[in-house]
Amino acid sequence: MNGQAWLLLFEGAWTTLWISATAIAIGVVLGLAIALVRMAKVPFVDQLLVLYISLARATPLVTFVLFLFLSAPTFGINMNRNTAAIVAMTLNTAAFNAEIWRAAFLSFSREQKEAALACGMTSGVFFRRIMLPQMITTSLPGLVNEMSFLIKGSPAIAVIGIVDLTRVTNRIAAVTYDPLPPILAAALLYMLIISALLKLQAMAEKKANRLAM
């Protein structure tokens, strides 16, 4: 592989990285918001969210990306490829994240909440200072798992013409007639990205040991 090929490969890696990172960042927060709303058990809204989560979890990412990109104009929404990819990946990952956050909500100890209320904390302060920090620590392994699934599923966005890290290997091979080196290089880059995530997970697990009472 020559310098030109490497340059293309890094461009593809960058595309994969920034689109995935954007979807992950929004998806983690959106998942938390969905879990919060679900904990409030508002009638109708709750059923709607359950339906969304079921649909998003049951649909392959590639199908979802394609559907969103092709159907958006029908609803009068003009989306470019990148936006469609980000929206689809965000909606996909938020559904899984919502379930991870919800599990953390459900397993949180009532005793700690009582201790917080007893010394005069409002529910808001309790959530921000006591509950959320612990939920982040306990949920991080699950969230990171979902992040790595999302990144590994991200080649799906090539279906609407985005040249991501996997798609770019095709392009390089089309010129060099040697498909193996770019594929291997891409695999290496995926591993690098994922291993950074796993590092984060290991840090969280170390911190989580403190929470064992």
């Binding site: 005793e111 700690q112 201790a115 007893a118 010394c119 006591i130 612990q134 929470l211 009472m213």
Partner: peptide, 15 residues
């Protein structure tokens, strides 16, 4: 906030 409570199970915040 004008009261304090001590519980049987301590209920400290582990983080």
């Amino acid at each position: 906030a004008k009261t304090g409570m001590v519980f049987q199970g301590f209920n400290l915040w582990p983080h």
